[in-house]
Nucleic acid binder design. Sequence first.
RNA 1: GGGUCGUUAGCUCAGCCGGUUAGAGCACCUGACUUUUAAUCAGGGGGUCGCUGGUUCGAGUCCAGCACGACCCA
Length: 489
Amino acid sequence: MSDSLVEARLGKIEALKARGIDPFPARVPASERIDGVLRRHGGLAAEEHSGARVGVAGRLMARRQMGKASFLDLRDGSAKIQIHAAADRLGDEAYRGICDTDVGDFLHIAGEVFRTKRGELTVAAESWTFLAKAIRPLPEKWHGLKDVELRYRHRSLDLLSSDETRERFVRRAKMMETLRSELTRLGFLEVETPSLHPIPGGTTARPFATHHNALDVDLYLRIALEIYLKRALIGGLDRVFEIGKCFRNEGVSTKHNPEFTMLELYQAYTDYEGMMRLAESLVGAVFQAAVGSLVVDYQGTRLDFSPPWHRVAMLDAIAETSGLDLGTLTAPEIVAAAKTKGIGVPNLSRTQLIEHLFDRFVEPTLIQPTIVTDYPVEISPLAKRRADAPHLTERFELFVMNMEIANAFSELNDPVDQRVRFEDQERLRAGGDEEAQRIDEDFLFAMEHGMPPTGGMGVGLDRLAMLLSNSASIRDVILFPALRRKDEA
RNA sequence: GGGUCGUUAGCUCAGCCGGUUAGAGCACCUGACUUUUAAUCAGGGGGUCGCUGGUUCGAGUCCAGCACGACCCA
C-alpha cells in the first residue's frame, strides 16, 4: 500500500529530528511573497544577477536534480519561483539536506535573484530552512486529479494541482469583493441576521430542522434571508444587504447544493424596476472585475450581459413559446386549450399550470440574460400586487443559461394584505403543501408599524460564480460541496 | 426515484474473445550527472483489480446485489 511511501517519509522526520532539525518549526525566517519578487526583478536580462538578496517561503512543487546542483520549484499562494541549489554555494552538508527534502515539503530559501540563461527568474540559494514536512506524495504533477470525485473529496489536492480550480475560486472571491464594494458605494449597509429560524420563511422550500436544548425549541436552518432583512429595513436600515449561507433540504444536482450562498438586498424608496437596473449594474460590475468583460463564453455558449437585458412578462413568454394565450382562462379552460394544440398537461390549479407551462416551454429557451416579470400572486406571497392586475405581482426573476439567478420584487409593505397572503399560504399548508409559507407574527408586527415602499432582490451567488468561471457544475464553485459519506475500511 | 456509464499502484491510465507471475508513465528508493524547467540515463520496490456473492477447470475480464461517483430524465 501507500504506507511504504508514508513510512519512508515518517523515517525522514525522525532523521531530521536526529540531526536537531525541527520538521515543523513555528518560526519562519523573514520572507516576502513570490509574486512581489517576480515583479520587482522582472526586468533582469538572461544570465544577469540582481545583487539583491531575498527570502521566500513556500511548498516544493518540483525538483530537477543534476548531481551537485538542482533546480527546485517553490510555490506560495501568490506565484511560483525557481530555486537554484548548488553544492559549492550552499556547502556540501546544506546541499545534501536540501536534496533530502521531498516534493510537497515547505521550505524557506534565502539567496540572490538572477535570471538563468534559459530566461527563468531564479533564486540562487545561499541558505535554506525546513518549514514543514509532507508525508504523502502530491498528485501526479502533469495531469493532477482528474477523477471528479477525488477533486471534490480532496479539494486541497485539486487546488494544488489545478490552476483552473484555483482560478475559479479567485474569480469567486473577486465576485464577493465586487458585490460588497459596489453595494457599499451605493450606501448599502452589510448586516448579519440569524441562521437559526423559529419559522423558516422568505421562500418556499424544505428546511433542515434542529433543536435548541437549553431553550427547548425546534429551530430551522434558514432557507432565505428575506424576513429578518426586511425587519432591519423597517427599523430604518433602509439600504441593507447580507451575503450568507441558506440551507434547503432538497436534492443535490449540478445546480443545487444543500447549502448555498445568497445575496439579499433591500432598498427603500424604489421598486422592482429599480431592482432590474441594480441587477444589471451589479452583475455587470462583477463580470467586469472577475472576467474583464460583459461577454463571456459559458460551456460553448456566448453570453452577453450588456444592459439592458431582455424583459418579458411570464404569460407573454408562455404564449410566445407554447402558442397558448392563457389570458384570464380558468384551469379547465387552459387544459382544454392545451389539448386543442396537442399539448398534454396534468390537471392542476391555474397557477400550477402556469408554472408547469413556464418550466416546460419557457425556461429551456432562456439562455441570454432575461428578466421574466409578473408572477402570479399565489406563488409570490411577499411581493406587491400589480395595481392594474392584482392577481399578478411586481416580481421578476433573472434567468441565464436556463438557470434562475436572481429573484426580486416590489416588496409587499401592506400589513393587511401580507396577513391575507400568509393565511392563503397556511390554507395550502393545511391542504398538504409542506413547503407553503407560515404566518410570521413577528414580521407582521414589525410591518404593522409601517414599512416604506421597497425593492428587494436575492441573488444565487454560486450560480453567478458558475457563469463567471465557466463551470458546468455548482460543485466546481463550492470549495467543499456536499457529497455522500463514503465509509472507509 | 428511473436510465446509461464508470471504479485497476499515492496520481494519470492500458489490460483484446475468460487462460501463465496484472502492465506503463509520474511519484518513491539506489546509482550517474553543476543551467534544468513534464530534466536525462541505468536499476529497484510498490496491487484486497470498489465491496459481497455467483457462473466456470480457471474471473481484473461474465452475471447479480451493494457502495460511491458522473451524465441524462422525472
